[in-house]
């Protein structure tokens, strides 16, 4: 049995050496969430939720850097490189400016914003329910109605389908993954964004089904909440990509 050994209570004769020998300034958890004054049953779930939120924030940072790396490559590749013109002894840029299908892109953007809003509604709804459940007003059951989640998923599918349309539009213009670097970057950035969004959709789907979850109610709430924040991040990211593609066309 792991017992905690309490040693002598003599005052340390030497100083701190890292970490003062005083009583802790506050007696909460080291990673204190400041949940004081909440009903007891609400706490563990809330703590788990906070943990996932931090996880999502950290993951979003990582995705940001991934895209920042690609964006810097985009800018660098636009400035440097190019084909060698031996007649004039200079580099000639082979960056082919793209004609973006703006109408479709704006429609997609609207779909994505809409999905972000509906997911936010779902997230808030869940939060309310969790509070009610903690107060004992509502049974902590898996929520199956969740219209907003379903709508979010539909909108997201719409966004992805719209992106497919954008890609086929570009293909009709003769812009492929290989060829001009502008095209390569376009497919790469939008494709990776779509993959990341699809990852969020998988989690939402999982939350909607919720069958295999252990603590169903709580886990569902966490999944919706975490995905919600991730989703907003995806929307912001999308507009950053859009801006890069628009302003950095060439």
């Amino acid at each position: 049995m792991p017992t905690i050994s309490h040693v002598t209570e003599r005052k340390p004769t030497l100083g701190d050496g890292g970490g003062p020998g005083k009583t802790p300034r506050r007696r909460g958890y080291g990673g204190d969430d400041g949940d004081h004054g909440q009903p007891e049953e609400f706490l563990p779930g809330q703590r788990r939720l906070r943990r996932y939120r931090v996880g999502v924030a950290v993951f979003s940072m990582c995705v940001t850097i991934l895209f920042a790396g690609l964006a810097s490559a985009y800018i660098v590749r636009q400035q440097m490189g190019g084909l060698w013109d031996s007649d004039h002894g200079t580099l000639v840029s082979n960056w082919r400016p793209l004609t973006l299908p703006y109408r479709q892109l704006w429609i997609n953007s609207l779909l994505l914003i809409a999905s972000s809003l509906t997911l936010e509604l779902a997230r808030r709804g869940q939060l309310k329910k969790a509070e009610f459940a903690a107060m004992g007003i509502l049974a902590p059951r898996l929520q199956r109605e969740l219209p907003w989640l379903g709508i979010t998923l539909l909108l997201a599918c719409g966004f992805l389908a719209g992106q497919l349309l954008v890609w086929s539009n570009l293909r009709h213009q003769g812009v492929y993954l290989s060829g001009s670097p502008s095209g390569s970057f376009f497919y790469l950035l939008t494709g990776l964004h779509a993959v990341h969004l699809a990852g969020g959709m998988v989690v939402l789907l999982y939350a909607l089904m919720g069958g295999s979850m252990k603590r169903k109610f709580e886990s569902q709430r966490i999944a919706v909440d975490a995905t919600g924040w991730y989703w907003h991040f995806m929307a912001v990211l999308w507009f950053c990509i859009f801006a890069l593609l628009h302003f950095g066309k060439g």
């Binding site: 209570e9 003599r10 340390p12 004769t13 050496g17 970490g19 020998g21 009583t23």
Partner: peptide, 23 residues
């Protein structure tokens, strides 16, 4: 307690566990 509370010599126990009761 802090993580490195090692005390001077001449004491029967020259360290304080981090979870020892506060003085």
């Amino acid at each position: 307690h802090g993580p490195y509370e090692y005390r001077g010599p001449g004491l029967e126990k020259d360290y304080v566990m981090q979870n020892a009761p506060s003085p």
